[in-house]
Design a protein around this nucleic acid. Structure first.
Lengths: 232, 232
DNA sequence: ATCCAAAGTTAGGCAAGACGAATTCAGGAG
DNA sequence: CTCCTGAATTCGTCTTGCCTAACTTTGGAT
């Protein structure tokens, strides 16, 4: 039985793979400087690590041309993402963590937990498909749901939409969103939009509907799906 | 407020401090080679680390004479021990871990969890005073109960005793103890003892009392307190 | 009082990762 | 086609922590 051995990649390698997975989205290879920013290290550190990751077979690396994950690298990265999202779900659901403070804790734990622990947590939660931010949780097989939502900045004025996922990670902005009642599952109507990347006005549905202004930068990170118009 | 900053000692340092704490018990300083064995590293690695720990103020180090923790080092070590024991308790109580498999998971997590997470787990458990092996859990203030139990090898024949704590860490022996019904809280009578460090025979109390033979090495790790004789 | 074995330490290296400084490449402006 | 700028890489170095080999100290046996 090829059971749950902890192949135990170093913490650094796991962090690099996760960053590359997030940056290479949509076919574009990840850039060295973007990885450096994402991990808060200097570019030469990234170049050095890319060479090691390439030799280890995790990435396809053509110097000066950016980097994409191999199948092996992608699987490894998705495993970390699964850990992170199960951890966030568990900490919020079972240990009273807040939406905005849970990220850092999960960030450290994701490198230390065993597969067994993650699966026990997943079971205790009833195998959730989305984490508290609305992001899909990769399966143990390494599949992840391809999201079909669009940014709030792309919802036409007058439409009703449902918030599906919050991309922002900044605790302060997450706290702000919580005060607006804007968490995954909330529905709202787009009231108006300022031109030239201006803020968006929405009316959040609920027992006490309330109008809110959302800055463009934040709106870009709110991923939504449009709700069917009443036909007739 | 001096709140829960993660002073974040390196994993290595935490491991060394924990090992020294366990080895220096009863006034005797910890020996270099004992630390090396305990951490599965070579003696020169220990010498090197002892110098660093000493400079950092965690230990009192006199070359060739062994090592004892300073007050600062002891506090740091007890903090790790608290983390470990709360983790073991939580994993068993809330996530279905077994008595014999929980150690390794806790061993990795104890270096990654925040103080906040440990306190939330402790609260969820109702602030337990002992871990699943019967070992006392240090308080957040850094105090630990001084155990008053004695080894099974020191209980006179004919006495009734209660198992308070299992010192062994080997999963196989822990599984074996579980099959005997020997976990903290169990009571038994010492039936006989072979001379010259031979095995001990006991009768475990319970709905179905059963006689068992316990090897000397294992018996040494079973910490018990004698139960009052019936007076009269 | 001496000597020897065991325990401990020093010396010298190696690997992982990070850094700043200096160099090289790629791609757009002219 | 050439040049320039910004991104990326190479180079040399640092820190942490581990190792083996060689040396030193300690303390018990004689």
């Amino acid at each position: 039985m090829a059971s749950a051995m902890r192949s135990s990649l170093s913490r650094s390698i796991e962090d690099y793979l996760k960053a590359i997975l997030e940056l290479q989205s949509e076919g574009t290879p990840a850039q060295t400087s973007a990885i450096a920013d994402s991990l808060a290290v200097a570019p030469p550190s990234v170049s050095g690590m890319l060479k090691r990751l390439s030799e280890a077979g995790f990435i396809e690396y053509e110097p000066y041309k950016g980097v994409v994950l191999t199948a092996v690298g992608r699987r490894a990265a998705l495993k970390i993402v699964r850990r992170h999202r199960i951890l966030e779900s568990y900490l919020m659901s079972k240990l009273g963590y807040d939406w905005d403070t849970v990220h850092d804790e999960a960030e450290r734990l994701e490198h230390a937990v065993s597969d067994q622990l993650i699966e026990r947590m997943a079971m205790a939660l009833g195998h959730p498909r989305y984490d508290p931010h609305g992001a899909p949780i990769p399966t143990t097989a390494g599949d992840i749901e391809r999201p079909d939502h669009v940014s709030l900045t792309d919802i036409p004025v007058g439409r009703i939409a449902e918030l599906r996922m919050v991309g922002d990670k900044d605790p302060e902005r997450l706290r702000y969103l919580a005060t607006l009642g804007l968490k995954p599952g909330a529905t709202f109507e787009v009231l108006s939009r300022q031109p030239f990347h201006g803020p968006v006005a929405i009316r959040v549905a609920g027992p006490m509907p309330r109008d809110q202004i959302v800055g463009y930068e934040l709106a870009e990170t709110l991923w939504c799906s449009m709700v069917e118009e009443e036909v007739g």
